[in-house]
Design a protein around this nucleic acid. Structure first.
Lengths: 120, 120
DNA sequence: ACAATAGGTGACCATTTAGTCACATGTCAA
DNA sequence: TTGACATGTGACTAAATGGTCACCTATTGT
């Protein structure tokens, strides 16, 4: 019998977890480098350890973060599956191409602006 | 000068807009068929007109819904661009394949369960 | 054993948020 | 122009949320 699967998530918990900027920043940190401890993450936020712990639990309950204990440390990893499910909910194959093209255009414009700034 | 672009969105507003189940349901309705009026959407939710209106404004401010007036009616359309940006934030090209494969597996298992149920 | 370190719990407070209502504006058609 | 219809505003209440703190447990190295 399967005891855990990264694709098993509660939709509502996922969206509520993503609603907070601190939690999104935690996901950014784990996207950058997974397998961090609570203390390590705490140092990056302007908040007490308890606040960070609370946020991490919300993320874990939502399935956006999975954890593994190692001695007295708890390692946190990013799980991207719920993110992909959000995408699949409101973007079908037909509109996906248009949207991607628009965003590519946008980022290309932004990089031009950026290099213009850099030169200035 | 550009006065409007579907790719111009405030990240925080997008995530907070998606945090409510009623608002996600409104997006589902507009994903199914875009260009609906307030009254039309109101009939689908178990909520007063005012509540629905408030939710639609949140979605509009987030850029997830764009509107067009037509006489005394206001038509609402889904804008998928912010959704795609969420995806791009935490899923890179390398993990995208793994995640997609996992979700394909999941949906194939679910459809098997479903047809088994149907036969029973 | 001991102190230092890493993580955890429950209660608490300030702020935000969902939903409703009385009331107001603008548009259509007879 | 009159009445019906579609949408909009500001104030209000009840519930949820973010963040902190005093206090607690478990693991490590000496």
């Amino acid at each position: 019998m399967v005891t855990y699967c990264p694709a098993m998530v509660d939709t509502d918990q996922v969206f509520r977890a993503l609603a907070d900027p601190s939690r999104r920043f935690l996901l950014d940190l784990l996207f950058q480098r997974s397998g961090r401890t609570l203390g390590e993450l705490e140092r990056e936020l302007d908040m007490t350890r308890f606040g960070v712990m609370k946020h991490l639990r919300v993320l874990e309950n939502a399935g956006l973060v999975v954890t593994r204990r190692s001695g007295r440390e708890k390692l946190h990893f990013l799980n991207a599956v719920p993110i992909r499910e959000i995408h699949n909910r409101w973007i079908d194959k037909y509109t996906a191409h248009q949207v991607s093209a628009l965003l590519d255009l946008k980022s290309s414009l932004e990089s031009k602006t950026w290099s213009a700034k850099k030169r200035a």
